[in-house]
Design a protein around this nucleic acid. Structure first.
Lengths: 129, 129
DNA sequence: GGACAAAATGAAAACCGTTGTCAAAATCGG
DNA sequence: CCGATTTTGACAACGGTTTTCATTTTGTCC
């Protein structure tokens, strides 16, 4: 229904890693799009609610978004330098979380797992740099 | 050296789960302590820098702190209702993260893992309603 | 003790990402 | 077309955190 929402979604689909709302807004504006920051936030919220994009928080509390290929439960391997992100599955981790929870008498167990590293191109760039 | 820093550290050591800066500040004030919010923030920052407390971000971006028993690398099983937290080790997860990273050509691998659930007392409380 | 330098403190302002407000504009239904 | 509903976006408000800066406390050397 919403043209703007799709535009925001498009930006994310063409992006490799996680992007912030302000970041997306800046790109759209510099591309000549007429959109307000509020609308970007609303679009991202809606997309996140519908499970169309994944959200996570950076260390400094900023929310960042990514359109993930898989709708299923998965985790991320994120390059801490360029932001490039790979979706990874971890059945072993899922089981581990479940077990740890039960062993301690917890129910309704969920978990967050993110892996960070420096990707090979960034290692090369750093070596050259 | 700093009396205030120790006071903040004490609050955390007597707390079960993760606490926010404002939360700690409120408790100290209601206990009659003469301390400013700024100082609480500075104390927490210093404690985090020295590895005396663990920090993580809530879903809404607030920073929360906890004085952990173990200085070694560990993760947390947190009750999403009462905040009670258990420190858990996960050698399998450490290895998994490392492997996933290497397989994708990433180096310098780190990770964040948190497990959430509802603890047994909270399940009981909810049942009693 | 006293004096001076360095560090710690806290009230208030600044910051920054995010959310709410509300009137104007676009879209929908009939 | 016309009124009703939804979407939009400029702007203000919000809340957690950080900075500023003047004051107080602490440490040190005599």
């Amino acid at each position: 229904m919403s043209n703007r929402r799709d535009a925001v979604h498009d930006i994310l689909r063409h992006s490799d890693g996680f992007r912030s709302a302000q970041d997306i807004y800046a790109e759209m504006r510099s591309d000549g799009a007429k959109i307000g920051l509020t609308t970007v936030y609303r679009a991202l919220q809606a997309l996140a609610d519908n499970g169309k994009v994944d959200v996570l928080r950076t260390d400094d509390g900023e929310a960042v978004y990514r359109a993930c290929a898989s709708g299923d439960h998965h985790h991320h391997l994120v390059c801490r330098r360029c932001g490039r992100t790979v979706e990874v599955a971890g059945p072993a981790v899922e089981r581990w979380a479940e077990t740890i929870g039960r062993e301690n008498g917890f129910s309704d167990i969920t978990h967050t797992v993110e892996v960070f590293g420096t990707c090979s191109s960034c290692v090369a760039a750093l070596r050259a740099g």
